[in-house]
Design a protein around this nucleic acid. Structure first.
Lengths: 217, 217
DNA sequence: GTCTATAGCCCGATAGAC
DNA sequence: GTCTATCGGGCTATAGAC
């Protein structure tokens, strides 16, 4: 009984540490955060924190691992509707924008690591993210081959989808200034979604022509 | 004569320090870089560096100031062709992509500062960037009013233009992984430009109809 | 598991010789 | 202008009492 109770308390503190570390890493980057900052944010001592995590870098890796889990969980939307490009892209964009809205710190930690050249996580990105992206690109190319959508470079399209959705998390401070408000609200995200969906569908979908099947030589 | 010679040498070292600091701040963020790192990168001592700049934060501000100059110098393309939306947008996108290709570290320093919530540069961004953006948005709205382009939210369009172009500097490490090469080359930037221009023009330009003036009720 | 104590190093910044 | 020397403090991490 006691071990269970202890274990629960232990896991709660461990999770609190990971959450606080994520928030601080997102804001100031790896080098801008000390173990003392994180410890104080959860009301513990730095030494206690080092009891749960063997080193600062190990803690950072755990944070990044969790961030990658969340990032990838919003990325499988394309494969959900393998025969309907329009609906698949609508859901993909909506999902990635929901990620930016619901998990801005995850987005920022990931962005910080990528901007730095992914010094610590290049291997994990190559193993987990790239295959996921390539799967999406493959789905895209199949649509184009089947005549379900226009021929566009799926790899650059994926880049554009990340960029246009994650910017609403990573750049929210500057976007708020542009929009003249303290922070982004639901209406702003709805406006963003509307524009991005409009752009992507105009680019990717074939011009509707239910009568004829071929236009270019 | 001597004062001039000294002055020249002084300005050269000062510029070397700023360049090295920019590169390191881009890679590791403000907190991840020490004065010693920067000093060693230019072959000087940390004390000597503090002779040229009164403090680390003052040096960072000088770097950010220069970054903002470059960033803004690529942003006035819209006003150059106030009567030709298509050409103006083509040049704006090409210019911002050239910025990402020619000044990736400037882009990353700026991105790092914005992701952190612009703790140091919020005031300067509000004073210099926001008016520039609002000028672009105003040009855009005028085009829409004059019937030169479709009615889209100029503010979100500007966000999308930054995001889709800067991502090729800030996220180059991950994009390289996706494209399966060591670093991005001219052809990759050309492909990006082609896709972004295509998307934006499809979204913004009116459907060509030289015969009639109204389609929607 | 959490505490105090501390090792050993790196940090930004200053003082003063030359 | 550049140097050596150094201050005072923060840093990661470890040791050991309880």
């Amino acid at each position: 009984m006691k071990p269970i109770k202890f274990s629960v308390a232990r896991e709660k503190l461990e999770q609190d540490i990971l959450d606080a570390a994520k928030r601080l890493f997102a804001q100031r980057g790896y080098g801008g955060v000390s173990l003392d900052h994180i410890a104080k944010a959860v009301g513990a001592s730095k030494q206690n924190l080092l009891y749960y995590f063997p080193s600062k870098e190990a803690l950072y890796r755990r944070v990044l691992h969790g961030v990658l889990d969340v990032w990838l969980s919003y990325m499988d939307a394309l494969s959900q509707r393998p025969d309907d490009p329009e609906q698949a892209l609508r859901e993909y964009i909506a999902g990635k924008l929901r990620f930016s809205r619901e998990h801005p710190d995850d987005s920022r930690v990931y962005a910080n690591e990528v901007i730095s050249g992914a010094p610590i996580f290049a291997a994990e990105i190559a193993e987990r993210v790239i295959p996921s992206v390539q799967a999406d690109v493959a789905i895209f190319n199949r649509w184009a081959e089947c005549g379900l959508c226009r021929q566009v470079d799926g790899r650059h399209l994926m880049v554009l989808l990340w960029a246009s959705t994650q910017v609403y998390a990573d750049w929210s401070s500057q976007i708020s200034l542009v929009l003249g408000k303290q922070e982004l609200d639901e209406a702003d995200f709805a406006a963003a979604e509307s524009l991005i969906v409009d752009m992507v569908l105009r680019t990717v979908l074939l011009p509707s022509r239910p009568d004829h099947g071929d236009a270019t030589p």
